[in-house]
Design a protein around this nucleic acid. Structure first.
Lengths: 198, 198
DNA sequence: ACCATTTTATGACTTAAATCATATAAAATA
DNA sequence: TATTTTATATGATTTAAGTCATAAAATGGT
């Protein structure tokens, strides 16, 4: 998103997280802008029974957790490192200063938020009213489009576990496994030693 | 969102829609920026079986449908007038010109998108994993916070039909009616001649 | 190389919400 | 005012996805 040298100019500091580390928590006041240098971060919620819902998974060069910064609200979800990750963060004040002095960044932020809102709109409609197979396939297609999944001879390798697909679509693992099996039978995707290709 | 005189300066034109009129359709290329002068607009999708999902309802002074404009994608949902409505619209080109010449508007757009993303995050987690009563109550509380529902002696009047609550939460009318009844019994809200107060 | 954990997998059973049917009240319209 | 349409309401039934149990393969750490 934002060039690292520019972030460093605004007192950007580098932080390292281990897989599973919590970066920030739901309900807490936002204080920084976060951008991924390397690794993988998910934002999630837990419902009253402890079931996880993954709001999104973020990768290299992506930022996450800005909306509450702009609207003075607490975080609506947690941010957790999925793998060991290196992040660069700057304070809220410095972030606004940076924005003020770099009008092109505003447009980048707008585009990024628009992209995320688009994903949420698509998935909201899916989750609320489509059947499991439809939901899973949509998530897969959207992810191929947006994330950099590798194209192999068998097709795009879907780099999600069944559990992650479940947590992203609001389904249980068993349901995802069954949906994927059924989609394979219909020829909509391939399973080659447990890995999913589309 | 954007002052009407400013929109007029950028060739803004006023359009009138009757209740039920389609403003734009899912899958179509976006061409304009839309802002409500008066009336009420919903964005929605229909699933394969024709069930409606309402992405959001928009009121006076609010804009809608910009994200696809910024990311060069087709509309992810339809926009439909819920009541007779008066809108002001400007072309995509003029909108970008306006943004370029008015840097303060960029921040307003960012805040608006952040607010909508926040709503989507909260509702996504609700819809995917909370029970009907929880979902309905969350929608109601969020709507009180964001929309200008009138405060009366009995509490805030929830200006939604049961069907609209269903379409916003991914539930069926009957389920919403039962959830609301149950929430009333628990004292979480009031029903006074069929109207819901919180 | 071994053990613990995670991931994928499948069958049997349960359950919560959807569906279907029907009714009445309220609002809109002719 | 009468009539159609929309919104709220409730009971009975169905069903799709969740839950539970169990297992085997794959992965990761020591």
């Amino acid at each position: 998103m934002i060039a690292i040298p520019l972030l460093e100019k605004y007192n950007g500091i580098i932080k390292n997280y281990q897989s599973g580390d919590i970066i920030f928590e739901e309900g807490k006041q936002p204080t920084h802008y976060y951008q991924i240098i390397s690794g993988e971060v998910k934002m999630n919620n837990y419902n009253d029974e402890g079931k996880e819902f993954i709001q999104g998974i973020f990768y290299k060069n992506q930022c996450f957790g800005e909306p509450p910064l702009f609207i003075d609200q607490v975080y609506p979800a947690n941010a957790v490192a999925v793998t060991d990750s290196e992040l660069i963060i700057i304070t809220k004040d410095k972030f606004f200063e940076l924005l003020k002095n770099n009008s092109d960044i505003s447009l980048a932020i707008i585009k990024n938020l628009s992209q995320r809102l688009y994903y949420k709109s698509v998935m909201a409609a899916e989750i609320s009213s489509q059947d499991p197979e439809h939901r899973v396939l949509r998530l897969i297609d959207y992810s191929i489009e947006q994330l950099n999944f590798k194209k192999e001879e068998a097709g795009f390798l879907i780099n999600f576990t069944r559990q992650q697909i479940g947590d992203l679509t609001g389904l249980r693992v068993e349901t995802v496994i069954r949906a994927i099996k059924s989609l394979e039978k219909k020829g909509d995707l391939k399973i080659i030693n447990r890995k999913v290709y589309r």
